[in-house]
Write a protein that binds this DNA or RNA. Structure first.
Length: 698
DNA sequence: CTGTACTTCCT
DNA sequence: GGAAGTACA
């Protein structure tokens, strides 16, 4: 096809040969050059952590061996600029086409757009595909064609779309290899000497690689899935799917997961197995959250570093590295939290429930800035995933429209972990110093009788800490912090109205809470795990300001773009994109909603009506055309204004004019994205459609 | 069977 | 905090 040149299939987080649309397209087009480019510097702060790099290394080796058995090989390149490397590969191989699968994190959106532009200019036919999601983010909209702002609405829609997700494709039977004789692979280094020892242990517990992922999926669906709803609340149960690292690297297709799970659902539905059906719904929901994380990232590319809602803009986060360190080391004095943090450090894994516990503790009790916790998760989790983790932390922090109240420490008794760890086995496993405490006391040593402690060999404050913060103190401090936040907010508004402080919004925007320097390097309680970061890692933290140790209540804002609150939204709201979906060709298969729950929840927006702002001028939001004529069709174009639906929200909610207005509760919600920084990267509009033909651009 | 107090979970 | 479920009069 296309003149007979070979195609580059650019692998990224789609390390599988099965149900890989980019690979399938390459195979269909003729000879294939399979490429992986390792350019971690492109990730900025989010240089992958040790365990994540370990996984990637294994997964790539696995993919390479699969490709070899199919007739080709994986070309690997070390790079600081993926797009330049692609052009080099084009030059050295004579490839005429490039295929890849979509990613939705902000860095990839920019980079992939640039890849498309530059390579198209170079005369290369570029096509990209959906391999990571059931539906592309722009396919899932409400009745007015606007993106959803709550998960439940989003997920209800996904489960009731008029067409099913694409059916998974089989792996190619054979791949014709392109000529790579003049395109040598670089040896990719994913771990340094100091990391090898720790990494060796990982191989005992995990088997990266797409066919292992497939086995894990089958095992889960035929086994633990049916018990999922019952067992999911046990901290150390082996009944989670353990698919998340596989899914992160795209070793298994989420569409295959979805299809196989729905088959089970139909079977169990016919059998009247309600427990099984409930399990399926819950498990699919966790798949849905992963979908939603991409959806949010696509619609709000800064959701990994900025709260989606602005109402915590003035919250005085506790910038205290001592707290942060205690949390990381599992020395907070709360056994369940500490057990979780030690498990995370030791294994790179944490049960979802425990993730909620430790992150909720981090935000609500310690009141540390959530981005620190998110960064630590990024550095340590085997399944570290920017979009999913951003969603999780924003949810915990109460900065999502459908999240929880911020001003409550929910279920403080869950910190006495009898719900997730009723017999204390989990705590005893990870906190040997508490192993001899009776179950009755193992979750709350702080009020355990002295005689019991002595008998168990526990000396509080010595071999196990007293609670770093008492729950009651944390509640009180939370209230103080909130009133301080409201004062700051009021002062800020007053200053703006007086015109005396125009610069504040700007300065806040440019002063996010810096990560503490080198957080990976000082964590380790055990020298054997010392994580001597390679030079590249250090560099990413080198330019960070270190938070002051002396001012634990230093007020540091989560940044927001400057918002001029004086003008009414109706006067100046941006043009509303209307036809994002026109170019889509919905698949025509008959929709099968067999038994899937489509109960519609109420939106249940939170009552955070503290600012009382109603007139908000989102003048910083740029307007941009959301569609482009192309090949006789209109295709959706990712562009800042098109994906930022703040202006639509303003329009709709203000026109409702009711006391339950969304924006009355969340006056600055969804005004979160500083598009200037995006445009600095050179992206004005990013094609995400999958049918760009050569020379169609420009 | 309906009303109501109580519990659980919430992305 | 509130919806949705549960137990019981």
């Amino acid at each position: 096809m296309s003149g007979g040149g070979c195609s580059i299939v650019w692998f990224r987080r789609d390390l599988r040969v099965e149900d890989n649309p980019a690979l399938a397209a390459g195979v269909r087009a003729g000879a294939v050059i399979a490429v992986f480019i390792w350019a971690p510097e492109e990730e900025g702060h989010y240089y992958p952590g040790r365990v994540s790099r370990w996984w990637l290394k294994q997964s790539l080796a696995h993919l390479d061996s699969s490709l070899k058995s199919l007739g080709t090989t994986l070309v690997t390149k070390r790079s600081t600029d993926s797009v330049s490397s692609l052009i080099e590969i084009v030059k050295s191989t004579g490839a005429t086409q490039l295929f890849f699968n979509h990613l939705y994190d902000p860095i990839s959106l920019v980079r992939d757009h640039r890849a498309k532009e530059l390579l198209t200019d170079y005369g290369i036919a570029v096509r990209s595909f959906n391999a990571d999601l059931l539906y592309e983010p722009w396919e899932v909209n409400d009745d007015q064609g606007r993106p959803f702002i709550t998960f439940s609405d989003f997920w209800d829609k996904c489960l009731s779309m008029p067409y099913d997700p694409a059916a998974p494709m089989l792996p190619p039977k054979r791949i014709t290899s392109g000529d790579v004789s003049r395109c040598p692979s670089d040896v990719l280094v994913f771990e340094d000497e100091s990391e090898k020892g720790s990494n060796a242990l990982l191989a005992r517990a995990w088997s990266p690689g797409w066919s292992n992922a497939d086995k894990a999926l089958t095992t889960f669906i035929n086994g633990p899935l049916i018990e999922y709803s019952v067992n999911r609340r046990k901290a150390d149960s082996a009944t989670t799917s353990f698919l998340s690292p596989h899914l992160h690297f795209g070793e298994v297709s989420v569409r295959k997961v979805f299809h196989l799970v729905r088959i089970k659902q139909v079977v169990w539905g016919n059998e009247g197995n309600t427990a099984g059906e409930e399990s399926v719904n819950l498990f699919l929901k966790s798949i849905g959250l992963r979908e939603y994380s991409r959806y949010l990232s696509f619609n709000h590319p800064y959701s990994h570093e900025r709260p989606l809602l602005g109402h915590l803009k003035f919250f005085p986060w506790v910038v205290d590295e001592g707290y942060f360190k205690a949390w990381r080391q599992g020395r907070t004095g709360y056994p369940l939290v500490d057990a979780g943090m030690r498990e995370l450090w030791a294994t790179g894994w944490l049960h979802d429930r425990i993730r909620v516990v430790v992150s909720s503790f981090f935000v609500k009790v310690l009141q540390l800035p959530w981005r620190w916790g998110m960064k630590y998760f990024w550095d340590t989790l085997l399944d570290a995933d920017l979009e999913s983790d951003a969603l999780g932390w924003q949810y915990i922090s109460g900065t999502l429209p459908d999240g929880r109240e911020f001003d409550r420490i929910d279920n403080p008794q869950q910190l006495e972990g009898y719900k997730f760890d009723p017999n204390g086995e989990y705590v005893r496993r990870w906190l040997p110093e508490l192993a001899r405490l009776p179950t009755e006391w193992v979750h709350h040593p702080w009020n355990t009788p002295e005689s019991v402690l002595q008998a168990a060999g526990v000396e509080l404050g010595s071999n196990y800490p007293l609670p770093i913060v008492e729950i009651d103190a944390a509640k009180a401090r939370l209230q103080e912090a909130l009133s301080e936040m409201w004062q700051q907010e009021a002062a800020w508004r007053a200053a703006i109205e007086n015109g005396t402080d125009e610069g504040l919004g700007e300065s806040m925007e440019s002063a996010p809470i810096a990560f503490p320097r080198d957080i990976q390097m000082e964590i380790d309680p055990e020298p054997a795990r010392n994580n001597n970061a390679p030079a590249t890692m250090v560099r990413h933290h080198g330019d960070q300001r270190v938070p002051s140790m002396t001012s634990s209540f230093l007020r540091v804002e989560e940044e927001e773009p400057s918002v001029d609150l004086r003008n009414s939204a109706e006067d100046s709201r941006a043009e509303v994109p209307t036809n994002m979906n026109l170019g889509q060709e919905p698949r025509r298969e008959e929709s099968n909603q067999g038994g899937l729950q489509t109960v519609r929840n109420n939106n249940n927006l939170r009552q955070f009506d503290t600012f009382g702002l109603q007139n908000t001028d989102y003048s910083t939001a740029e307007s941009s055309s959301s569609t482009r004529e192309r090949d006789g069709g209109v295709v959706p174009v990712w562009s800042p204004a098109a994906s930022s639906f703040s202006e639509q929200l303003v329009g709709e909610e203000n026109s409702l004019g009711s006391g339950s207005s969304y924006l009355q509760r969340h006056p600055q919600s969804h005004q979160i994205i500083n598009w200037r920084r995006l445009s600095q990267t050179g992206a004005r509009s990013w094609e995400m459609e999958n049918t760009v033909e050569p020379n169609a651009i420009g």
